[in-house]
Simulated scan of single mutants.
Amino acid sequence: MSLARRGRSITLLGFVTSGAIGIISSTQTWFTVERTDAGAEILVPGASALVLLAPLSLAVLALGAALSIAGRALRVVFAVLAAAAALFLGWSTLQLLVTDPLAAVGPTVTEATGLAGDTAVDAVVASITPSMWPGLALAGWVVLLAAAVFALSTWRRWKAGGRRYRTADDAPAHGDGPVDAIDSWDDLSRGTDPTR
């Protein structure tokens, strides 16, 4: 079986992997803040450093679940939404890694120290050390973007899926022969009265 024929499985694996990495990393320490006042260090979790990390990671997982039963038109929509989420989260995570993450740790520092305002927070922060989790999350967003691009390039060759989720209107009607209990239930599902 060719790679393109396994497109749905490969895409689903990419979505689930990146979404899981995002959810797990949202609960882990992204930055450790050393204080100038010799107070205890402040641990900043991913959900505090990047506020949309957990909700968008959950959305990616939901897109993966929906993609497993999606029809042809929705495949493209879900892939585009996943690519947009990957670009946004990737850019936001990269910004935290390459620029001064003082704005990202500010709310957590304010909560821990009671000091508000950029000047006060800057005065209490001696250093900010990133952990491995922002880099791991960034790798997850690269995987998500690759899975979305792969889905957009192969969705036409995917096997038809979701037969079990089709409505009763898609099912063929029974013939003119004798009607059993199963046929009666099927007729009721289609909205017709089998007693007539």
Rank of each mutant, 00 (worst) to 15 (best):
L58P: 03
S57M: 04
A84N: 13
D122L: 03
V33G: 00
W30D: 00
A83H: 15
T27P: 01
V109D: 01
L81H: 15
L94H: 08
A85I: 15
L102P: 00
L96C: 02
P45S: 08
L94Y: 06
S25A: 13
G90C: 09
A49K: 01
L53F: 13
L97I: 12
S26I: 04
L89T: 02
V33N: 00
I128D: 07
L81C: 15
L89M: 14
A82T: 06
F78T: 03
T32G: 12
F78K: 01
L102R: 05
S131N: 05
A123E: 04
D100C: 03
I42V: 10
A103I: 04
T113G: 12
I23C: 15
L115I: 02
G22T: 11
A126S: 05
P101T: 02
L81A: 15
V121P: 01
F88G: 06
S131M: 04
S131H: 03
Q28W: 03
E41K: 11
A104Y: 00
L52D: 11
L61N: 14
L96K: 01
S92M: 13
I24T: 14
A47E: 08
A59C: 06
L56W: 12
F88S: 11
Q28V: 10
L67S: 15
G19V: 13
L115D: 06
I69Q: 10
V109M: 05
A62E: 09
F78W: 10
L43N: 05
A84K: 14
R72W: 13
V124T: 11
T119H: 06
E111T: 06
G64D: 07
L94K: 01
A66V: 12
G114A: 10
V77I: 14
V125D: 06
L52W: 07
G19A: 14
L94E: 01
V121C: 05
A66Q: 07
L81Y: 15
G114Y: 07
E41M: 09
S26R: 09
D37R: 05
P107C: 13
L67R: 12
V16R: 10
T17I: 11
T119V: 08
I69C: 06
P130I: 00
I128N: 08
E111V: 02
A79E: 15
T110C: 12
L96M: 11
A59E: 01
I69K: 08
T27Y: 13
V44N: 02
L61P: 13
A120L: 03
S26H: 12
S131F: 03
I24Y: 11
G22I: 06
I42H: 00
G64K: 01
V33E: 00
F88H: 09
A66M: 07
V33K: 00
L43H: 07
L87I: 12
A123I: 04
S127D: 07
S92I: 00
A73W: 08
L87R: 00
L53I: 14
A126N: 04
T108S: 09
A126K: 09
V60H: 13
L61Q: 13
T93S: 09
P130R: 09
A62G: 12
V44M: 07
I23G: 15
A66R: 03
A49E: 02
V105Y: 02
G39C: 02
G22A: 14
